[in-house]
């Protein structure tokens, strides 16, 4: 009985970790933040190479960026990876959860300015010709 419970737990854990692994693998291909929620884009999507960025920035915890808010408070130790940013942040400028564009800008630029590292000007993230910075 007890052994069976342990086996079940292990099985679930494997399953969950596998589930986690699948999107993590998919993210390796991310090179820009082309959120499909933006209908008419003012500029090219921001260049963002997920793995390279996290290596350079030495980010190990997902929820540094994939934060989770509940009732206006950040929930520590929880993360929201797997969800799209636009699931919570809407394009509309009156979105109480912070409009999507502002959410992106704040998340990236605040961290960059805090650490004095990484781009903060418009053109550094939104290149006029995507291939220039894409590599």
């Amino acid at each position: 009985m007890r052994k069976g419970m342990v086996a079940l737990y292990i099985g679930m854990a494997v399953l969950v970790s596998m589930l986690c692994f699948v999107p993590a693998h998919a993210q390796e291909d991310i090179v820009s933040l082309a959120d499909s929620a933006f209908k008419d884009r003012q500029r090219a999507p921001a260049v963002f190479v997920h793995e390279e960025h996290n290596e350079k920035a030495e980010i190990e915890e997902c929820n540094v960026c994939h934060h989770l808010y509940q009732g206006g408070n950040k929930v520590e130790d929880e993360s929201s990876e797997g969800q799209g940013c636009s699931d919570c942040h809407h394009v509309e400028e009156d979105d109480p959860a912070r409009p999507l564009m502002k959410a992106y800008h704040d998340l990236c630029k605040a961290c960059h300015r805090e650490n004095d590292e990484g781009p903060v000007t418009c053109g550094e993230c939104h290149p006029k010709q995507r291939y220039v910075l894409g590599s």
Binding site: T121, G123, P127, K128
Partner: peptide
């Protein structure tokens, strides 16, 4: 805006 020349310097 058109990122001619060295963008950051121009900016």
């Amino acid at each position: 805006y058109h990122q001619w020349f060295d963008y950051k310097t121009v900016l």
